[in-house]
Simulated scan of single mutants.
Amino acid sequence: MIEQNANTEEKNRYQSELFANRLAKNLKQLRKWARRSRVTCYRLYDRDIPEIPLACDIYTFLPAEITDKMEAARFLMEQNTAISANGPEARQIIFEETQRTYAHIYLYERPYEKDDAEEDEWLKTMAAAAAKTLGLEHDHVITKTRRHQSDNGKRDQYDKIDSQIHISGTIQEQGQLFKVNLTDYIDTGIFFDHRPLRDTVRSECAGKTVLNLFCYTGSFSVYAAEGRAKRVESVDMSKTYTEWAKSNLKLNGFTDEEKYPVCRQDAVGFLNQKNAEVPNKEGTNRYDIIILDPPTFSNSKRTDTTLDINRDWISLVAKCLGILNPDGTLYFSTNSRRLKFDSTLLPSQDGTELYEATDITSKTVPEDYRNSRIHRAWKIKAKVTHE
């Protein structure tokens, strides 16, 4: 038993060194990129080493007194300029920045059984390695375990997790501000992997109507509002996340609730309702851009229906296309690797395909993700007919 424990400790120590070395290497590459890209949160480690199945994300909060995106932009520009100049202020600025920085680590469920006590000890060892390498206090490293979703009973993705500490703050991403919560839920309030697609929506939506389904905390909605969309509607079934989305919109200066409505409703029910409606003259029940980024699986207590995207994607996409304006665009994304996308299953008429789908995955995976399969994404539009 003593020999077994010694071997386990040695293996943990060895893997912690591997993890620390990779964190240091990635940090050197990504820290400057993050400053140039105007992001204060990004993925530092993405299961780079198969034997160390972790994801490590960096979150650097803005100072608590900064509550405006223009003020944040000025602050970060001045800070980055001082750091680049490497003058006498740089060391103090970096120290203060570190005090606002956290590492958020997910342990992905292993494909094999491992003793819980051994796993806890292993994760503590990795967290200690991260703290030392990144120059963080130990309580600035948050660890969680992300387990596979299953349909064994009701599991509510919106439930809070049992946490004795509460850590939240404001981050900047490409000019926008977002509230994040690192401790109270499995996810923090923003998904980094959709950063490029959010930027695409922002650049395309001027003067257009936008629908953000399964909106979560409204990051796509904030980007669309910043891109001068005519109207942005956000839909999610969670009270927690719809209130969070409203807060993010207001944080960025978008307070007009008629122009930026946030609807607490089951997305499938919302789609059924809009498809049953005749297009109105105000154009508020038809859309130029729809973002469809549903969970892979959902069996929330808040609805009697179960969503399985591998099974239901055809129906969901068809309902979105039913309320899409003739020259509109549907962006459909999924994290499921099992989903078998087939463009011939999109709505057709008398055997004639009406829509074309372009796989845009490679253009939507950000630089800080080594996992190019983090999601898949398609751009779906009506085919142009030549009469």
Results as ranks from 00 to 15, higher is better:
132 K>G: 07
75 F>P: 00
138 H>T: 15
53 P>G: 15
50 P>C: 12
82 A>T: 01
3 E>V: 14
53 P>A: 15
108 Y>P: 10
18 L>Y: 09
79 Q>D: 06
79 Q>L: 06
26 N>F: 10
142 I>V: 10
21 N>T: 07
44 L>P: 00
103 A>Y: 04
81 T>K: 15
129 A>K: 12
108 Y>Q: 13
102 Y>G: 02
63 P>C: 02
124 K>C: 10
83 I>M: 00
88 P>V: 09
12 N>V: 07
20 A>D: 01
101 T>P: 00
23 L>R: 00
16 S>M: 12
33 W>M: 05
27 L>D: 00
29 Q>I: 04
44 L>Y: 03
30 L>C: 08
21 N>H: 13
120 D>I: 11
74 R>G: 05
141 V>K: 03
11 K>Y: 12
67 T>E: 12
28 K>P: 00
67 T>P: 00
119 E>V: 08
44 L>G: 02
101 T>A: 03
53 P>Y: 08
107 L>M: 15
67 T>G: 05
143 T>P: 03
12 N>K: 15
56 C>E: 09
95 F>L: 02
106 Y>H: 05
47 R>Q: 10
11 K>V: 09
95 F>G: 00
38 R>H: 06
44 L>K: 03
139 D>Q: 14
6 A>H: 13
44 L>M: 13
91 R>N: 13
133 T>K: 03
81 T>N: 08
136 L>R: 02
30 L>Q: 03
49 I>F: 12
93 I>T: 04
130 A>R: 05
38 R>Y: 05
80 N>F: 10
63 P>D: 02
19 F>A: 11
38 R>K: 12
40 T>A: 02
55 A>V: 04
99 Q>F: 07
14 Y>N: 14
71 E>Y: 04
65 E>H: 04
40 T>Y: 01
11 K>N: 11
82 A>Y: 06
74 R>T: 11
143 T>I: 15
66 I>C: 02
6 A>V: 14
58 I>D: 00
41 C>E: 00
56 C>T: 12
105 I>M: 06
25 K>T: 01
86 N>A: 13
21 N>S: 14
52 I>H: 13
30 L>S: 03
97 E>C: 03
68 D>H: 13
30 L>F: 04
69 K>L: 06
35 R>L: 09
42 Y>N: 07
53 P>L: 10
30 L>A: 00
85 A>W: 12
66 I>M: 05
77 M>R: 13
43 R>S: 05
51 E>P: 13
21 N>Y: 08
26 N>Y: 06
85 A>M: 08
94 I>N: 00
129 A>G: 13
126 M>H: 09
134 L>G: 01
66 I>A: 06
39 V>Q: 02
49 I>S: 10
72 A>F: 04
53 P>F: 14
57 D>P: 01
77 M>C: 11
144 K>S: 08
2 I>R: 09
25 K>G: 03
133 T>Y: 05
71 E>M: 02
70 M>I: 04
142 I>F: 08
127 A>W: 05
62 L>I: 05
71 E>P: 01
91 R>V: 14
101 T>K: 03
120 D>F: 13
10 E>Q: 14
